[in-house]
Design a protein around this nucleic acid. Structure first.
Lengths: 200, 200
DNA sequence: ACAAAAACATACTAACTGGTATTTTTATAT
DNA sequence: ATATAAAAATACCAGTTAGTATGTTTTTGT
């Protein structure tokens, strides 16, 4: 039982260090050697726990990348309260609260999407899964808003959800290029204008 | 003089093959060897014309990537006609006209931004330059629309420009994950709703 | 005709890549 | 304590990487 715990701890350690390196330097250009140097364990240990780099990448996406999006963007949508207000505050606050490091390196999910999204069906599916979860939660919230009459009935929940996600992921990439938040301020104004359109 | 032409031809050939490989496989994971295999020239020839891979990357961004955005998204904004109609048609038509290959591999500029945007100030500047050009052209068109009274006076041209660019680049990445255009259709509905908000 | 220079080719390096084979260490069950 | 299996370390493989050093061929000015 103690051995099992140790194994689990090591796997989590590898995933943790791998996520950080993938986030900062990309997946394909981060080697197993670099990851294991961070864990202070050997390459042999890595291949004892994972059969390939691809398997690790998949776990990082499913366990770390997904968790980030769920915690930051999906779970808050399910809180009780005025649906429109929640929609507005989640998108705006999340963007404002990012630390400098996260602004500089963009969205981990978006980075994976752009690096691996056209590469391999397994990565594709894992990433699509996160997007679909996010989309579904947004649609549900918008529908809730329509019912409680805080969001206009006539708009397409699905279209609004997709447009919100697109613009959010888009700006997370573009922000990398700048060394200040001016572009984010513009984005937020643009977003607020959009939300006004769907507000009842 | 003949030599100069030959040199220019070779450089264009290298840039051309490099762009295609970068687009399909990413910058960091495309080697000089692979590029030069495509040109049917030698590695010696490459290092005669370019001092490093970084220099090539920069030229690809400045000459090919930028041209794509200018031709497809910026130049059409400068055509005469109703400003709102131009705005609408450029974004919608461009997205609809992408060949399958381009849908699958996303936007070359966005790919570069997400792979290299947090890496190196030279790439950052070159890419930021394209975004700023695009933004400026959009702002100018929106201002034009305000003057001719096809676009609402009270909206911030800058905010709308940034929001439009963000959502466009965002969806170009997300589309990679899917094997059909359903997500694009949702995006287009969402975009149209946004545009309705700024129409006079 | 000829020397200089540009264009390109060949051969190479040292460091790094994902992955494997083999051995050593550690934990557990009897 | 001892056999067994998991965890981890070491050493290694064949292939790839950006970049260099040194050639050969082609073009060009004289």
């Amino acid at each position: 039982m103690q051995q099992e715990l140790k194994s689990e701890f090591t796997k989590q350690l590898i995933i943790d260090k791998a996520f950080n390196l993938f986030y900062e330097h990309g997946f394909k250009t981060t080697s197993i050697d670099k990851i294991m140097k961070e864990t202070a364990l050997s390459k042999g240990a890595f291949y004892h726990h994972y059969k390939s780099k691809k398997e690790l990448g998949l776990e990082v996406i499913q366990l770390r990348v997904q968790k980030r999006v769920v915690d930051g963007m999906i779970a808050p949508l399910k809180e009780p309260g005025n649906a429109f207000d929640i929609l507005e505050s989640v998108f705006i606050n999340r963007l404002k609260e990012f630390p400098f490091y996260d602004k500089q390196h963009g969205c981990p999910m978006n980075n994976f999407i752009n690096e691996l999204g056209d590469n391999e069906v397994l990565y594709q599916t894992a990433l699509k899964n996160i997007i679909e979860k996010w989309k579904a939660a947004l649609i549900k919230l918008i529908e809730r808003g329509k019912e409680e009459n805080s969001i206009k009935q006539e708009i397409s929940s699905q279209a609004v959800a997709v447009y919100l996600i697109s613009s959010f992921e888009g700006i997370r990439g573009i922000r990398k290029l700048y060394d200040n938040d001016a572009i984010l301020t513009d984005y937020l104004s643009g977003l607020q204008l959009y939300l006004k359109q769907i507000k009842v």
